[in-house]
Amino acid sequence: MTYFFGKKTEQLFIWLFFPLALLLPLFLEQNEFYVNKLTSVVIFAIFVMSLDYLVGRCGMITLGHSMFYGLGGYLFILIAPEFEAVNFWVYTFYICVLAAAIALVVGVIVLRTSGVYMIMITLAIAQMCFYFFSDSVEFGGNDGLFILMKPDTSLFGLAFFNLDDPLHFYYFCLLSLFNCLVFWKLVTGSRFGRIMEAVKDNPQRTTALGYNVFLFRLLSYVMASALAAYAGYLFALQYGFVNPSMMSWQTSGSALVMSILGGMGSLYGAILGTVVYEGLHYSLEHLTEHWLLLMGCLIIAMVMLFKAGIAGFLENLLERRK
């Protein structure tokens, strides 16, 4: 564990966050909302983390990541029968594979570009997808669609948890978040991850060393997209509701904000950024109607003060004397 989560701050955060997140529902008032709110934050953190890997660790900035988030929900509606409860695990697998396949095709196009051009071409493709679902009558257009039958979660005849119980679902999402963090740590710690880092820092040199830079990028893009779709799938299941606004560029934009805020590329910073952003949003909007103004000012202040997001700031604070 100590070895695995390298930095002191990171360890501290993980030892604080996950136990706290585990215990929090016990201290909150027993009602559906708090658990649901926590669940949606956790789900979004999975999404933000996949973006954090892509942008922070691979240097591929995308403003179209929300496309996969939305597809996670819409793919389920597309492939699952409407009035029949399907198996959760099987469909999780289907959706991740389908999203990965789509990402493979999109990636081949998108990865021809880089930098600002990549931001824009990912945006363009996401917007096309957004308009496709907004304009289509079969998919409920702008008003969105309901998922009528939630999937059944039994595995080998054993039902581990109940999707209709918010608390069960919360713990499942939290576990997913933890798994994602471990997964990304494994990826970045592996040989693949180290080469990816080299690709990010100096693509020319890495090419000269005989690596196929394009393949490394493509694989990263596919992995991140599949996990984004997984997050979107969880989001769709939470309330049984999908809407094209999941795919809007604003969704990508706010995920990017959370990721930068947390500390780009630090992975655990994605959780930090999501929690801080959502927490601020929640408390400011209950504080005043002009929450946008405060939110904007706070974001500006944080950019000015923190050179590498909140994670960077904390690391500086805790590890300065070393």
Partner: peptide
Amino acid sequence: RRNHLDQVLLTIGMIFVFNAMQSL
């Protein structure tokens, strides 16, 4: 001298502020 992404974040913050100011 900072990362491009910091500029993105800053200008997004500015969008929030301008929208709020317009409404006010």
